[in-house]
Computed example of a mutant assay.
Amino acid sequence: MSLPQPVPPSWKDLGKSSNDLLSKDFPFQGFALEVKTKTPSGVAFKVAGNRDAKSDTINGDIEAKWSDRKHGVTITNTWTTSNILRSQVELENQIAQGLKLDVTSSLHPDKSTKTALINAIYKQSGFHTRGALDIFKGPTFTADTVIGRDGFLVGAEAAYNVTEGNVTRYAAAVGYNAPEYAITLHGLNNLKTFTASYYHRVSSDVEAGAKAVYDSKSTHGGVGIEVGAKAYLDQAAFVKAKINNAGVVALGYTQTLRPGVKASFGLALDTTKLNEVAPVGPSHKIGLNLVFDS
Rank of each mutant, 00 (worst) to 15 (best):
G148E: 01
K273A: 13
D205A: 07
A241W: 13
K192H: 14
G209Q: 00
N245C: 08
A208P: 05
A196T: 14
V248R: 02
T271I: 04
T193Y: 13
K273P: 02
D205Q: 01
A156F: 15
K240N: 03
F265M: 02
G175N: 02
A212Y: 06
I243P: 00
D150N: 12
R149N: 09
A173Q: 07
V162Q: 11
N245K: 09
Y176F: 09
K262T: 15
S203I: 10
G266A: 06
Y253R: 03
Y181T: 01
K240E: 02
L257Q: 04
G209S: 00
V206Y: 06
L274Y: 08
A250S: 11
E276F: 05
A237I: 03
R169D: 04
G224R: 10
G151R: 06
K273V: 08
T184V: 11
V162T: 07
A159V: 09
P259A: 15
E207H: 00
T272Y: 06
A208V: 08
Q235I: 02
H200N: 14
L185K: 01
Q255G: 07
A196C: 14
A246S: 07
G247V: 04
N190F: 07
T272M: 06
R201D: 15
I147K: 09
D270F: 05
L233E: 13
V213H: 05
V261A: 15
T184A: 12
A237R: 08
A171D: 07
R169Y: 04
V213T: 15
I243D: 01
A241Y: 11
H200P: 05
K262H: 03
N177I: 03
G222T: 00
Y199E: 05
V202I: 13
G260P: 12
G221P: 05
A229Y: 02
D270T: 01
G222N: 10
Y198C: 09
G175E: 00
L257G: 10
E157T: 04
N245W: 08
T254V: 10
R201T: 03
V261N: 14
V277P: 12
R149Q: 13
V202H: 09
G209A: 02
A250G: 03
G224T: 12
L185G: 00
T193K: 15
T256Q: 14
A268T: 02
R201I: 01
L185T: 01
T193F: 15
S204M: 12
A236C: 03
A263I: 05
D215I: 11
A229L: 05
V248M: 05
V206H: 04
G175A: 02
S203R: 06
A236K: 07
